[in-house]
């Protein structure tokens, strides 16, 4: 990967804008936030967009939460046949697609307690909410769903996209790398400081493949699922990941950090060519 110098410190005054539009909501046990940078965005347009996003966030919670007995997903987990809304069918389809692409490293059907699409829904929802924000006429923003971001437009006229830090797997107060994300999604899966683990569908235990995996690509649902899949597969996941043109990954596996794909201006690792 390309090593670059750390960004030069600058004075606060040169960094902080006159106008900031941020909104946040506690939902799904995490924080979802919107950061709008359109220079001419009126406050009421941001308010209207956020109102629609909040409604969608809570609708998604009611449908997809595995913590609510009455959610659609909880009913699916209990088995049987159910008539579901189009978006639920879409999520199930995306789960099937992600399971196939990751050769089973991402498998919502191997979760304890039954079908659990949580490893894909956050990124899927980030994209979906970003579409809502765009429908309100906003163009430059990030929709951050608990660390899975949908990035649209640019952070400032100086940027092609959004410079996004990847959290450091060993030190929650640091970032390990910075990637400029241009009209794409970025999702990270890892062992958080709160000790939440990713399960290996093969063993049913905690994934031992990688300590942290970040994926950048054109689709939020897949970015989220691929990050989970790479956590399980570790660098061996390069075998299937390399079949996805336009996708990039940053994987910390043991003491080794590897970065693949166009976001990091690197080719796939050697192992990936054996496929």
């Amino acid at each position: 990967m390309t090593a670059m110098a750390e960004p030069a410190p600058a004075s606060l005054a040169s960094l902080l804008p006159g106008r900031v539009h941020t909104r946040r909501e506690h939902v799904w046990g995490t924080v979802v936030s919107l950061d709008v940078r359109d220079a001419d965005a009126p406050e009421h347009a941001v308010d209207a967009a956020w109102e629609s996003v909040r409604a969608e966030l809570h609708r998604i919670d009611a449908v997809y939460s595995t913590f609510r007995d009455d959610s659609v997903v909880s009913r699916l987990r209990r088995g049987g046949q159910h008539l579901v809304a189009d978006d639920v069918a879409e999520v199930v389809d995306r789960c099937l697609e992600a399971r196939r692409l990751t050769e089973g490293s991402f498998d919502p059907w191997c979760a304890p307690g039954g079908f659990d699409p949580s490893g894909l829904v956050k990124g899927w929802a980030a994209d979906r909410c970003a579409d809502i924000v765009r429908m309100h006429g906003l163009r430059s923003f990030t929709l951050d769903a608990g660390g899975d971001l949908a990035c649209r437009g640019a952070a400032s006229p100086d940027h092609a996209g959004w410079p996004i830090g990847i959290s450091h797997p060993d030190d929650p107060m640091q970032v390990a790398a910075v990637v400029e994300v241009v009209d794409a999604a970025i999702a990270t899966s890892g062992f958080s400081q709160r000790g939440e683990h990713v399960l290996d569908p093969g063993s049913g235990g905690a994934a031992r493949g990688a300590r942290q995996a970040t994926v950048i690509g054109p689709d939020g649902a897949l970015a989220d699922a691929l990050a989970t899949g790479l956590m399980v597969a570790g660098v061996d996941g390069a075998r299937w990941f390399s079949a996805l043109p336009g996708w990039s990954a940053y994987v910390v596996d043991g003491g080794l950090t590897t970065a693949w794909g166009p976001a990091f201006e690197t080719s796939m690792p050697e192992g990936a060519k054996e496929r």
Binding site: T2, M4, G161, V178, E180, P262, E265
Partner: peptide
Amino acid sequence: AVIVGTGT
């Protein structure tokens, strides 16, 4: 998407 920096 290009990387703009690495390291800590």
